[in-house]
Amino acid sequence: MTPLWTAIAPILLLVASNVFMTFAWYGQLKVEHRAMWLIVLISWGIAFFEYCLAVPANRIGRATYDPAELKAMQEVITLCVFAVFSVTWLKEPVTLNHALGFAFIALGAFFVFKGPFH
């Protein structure tokens, strides 16, 4: 695999993976009229596709990133996908507190990648 592919593919796969993960975990919040056992089964089914993307993302990404970088990347992507999902699907606002909290997590990811002690 080319270095460019091993740098970009994990990001694309993690974004797609997080879309599935977010729907599996939070999509059901708008479906209150279904039995919990059914919601759990549907969520597991959706999560299967999340894993089908997340595992290759980490395997491919390992050629370019160390595990801590992959995890930090995963967290920032998760928050970005969740913020869009929350506004569009759940119709929830992103407040200043949310934005500040997300920014601090992104700052943590920055230090994992470019911190002063590298």
Score class of each variant (00 low, 15 high):
residue 55 V to F: 07
residue 67 P to E: 07
residue 83 A to R: 06
residue 38 L to I: 13
residue 70 L to E: 02
residue 79 L to R: 06
residue 111 F to S: 06
residue 112 V to Y: 00
residue 16 A to S: 13
residue 11 I to H: 08
residue 109 A to N: 00
residue 80 C to P: 06
residue 89 W to Y: 15
residue 108 G to A: 10
residue 106 A to M: 02
residue 41 L to G: 13
residue 69 E to Y: 01
residue 91 K to L: 13
residue 109 A to M: 06
residue 39 I to A: 14
residue 116 P to M: 07
residue 96 L to N: 04
residue 91 K to N: 12
residue 51 Y to P: 05
residue 80 C to H: 10
residue 36 M to T: 15
residue 49 F to Y: 03
residue 6 T to G: 04
residue 35 A to M: 14
residue 47 A to H: 01
residue 27 G to H: 06
residue 14 L to R: 07
residue 20 F to G: 08
residue 43 S to T: 03
residue 114 K to A: 14
residue 64 T to Q: 12
residue 52 C to W: 02
residue 42 I to E: 10
residue 12 L to S: 07
residue 8 I to L: 14
residue 24 A to C: 05
residue 100 L to R: 04
residue 97 N to T: 14
residue 44 W to N: 11
residue 43 S to D: 03
residue 46 I to S: 06
residue 90 L to Q: 12
residue 85 F to C: 09
residue 65 Y to E: 02
residue 108 G to P: 02
residue 31 V to H: 07
residue 19 V to Y: 02
residue 43 S to N: 01
residue 12 L to H: 01
residue 18 N to T: 08
residue 93 P to A: 15
residue 31 V to Q: 03
residue 30 K to Q: 10
residue 88 T to W: 15
residue 80 C to N: 13
residue 72 A to T: 09
residue 86 S to R: 01
residue 83 A to W: 00
residue 53 L to Q: 12
residue 30 K to D: 03
residue 63 A to V: 04
residue 22 T to S: 05
residue 99 A to P: 05
residue 74 Q to G: 05
residue 67 P to F: 03
residue 64 T to G: 04
residue 65 Y to S: 06
residue 80 C to D: 05
residue 16 A to Y: 00
residue 117 F to H: 09
residue 6 T to C: 11
residue 20 F to D: 01
residue 13 L to D: 00
residue 21 M to S: 12
residue 82 F to I: 13
residue 93 P to R: 15
residue 26 Y to P: 05
residue 16 A to Q: 02
residue 17 S to W: 05
residue 96 L to C: 08
residue 74 Q to C: 03
residue 112 V to S: 10
residue 8 I to C: 11
residue 27 G to E: 04
residue 64 T to H: 14
residue 99 A to R: 07
residue 62 R to C: 05
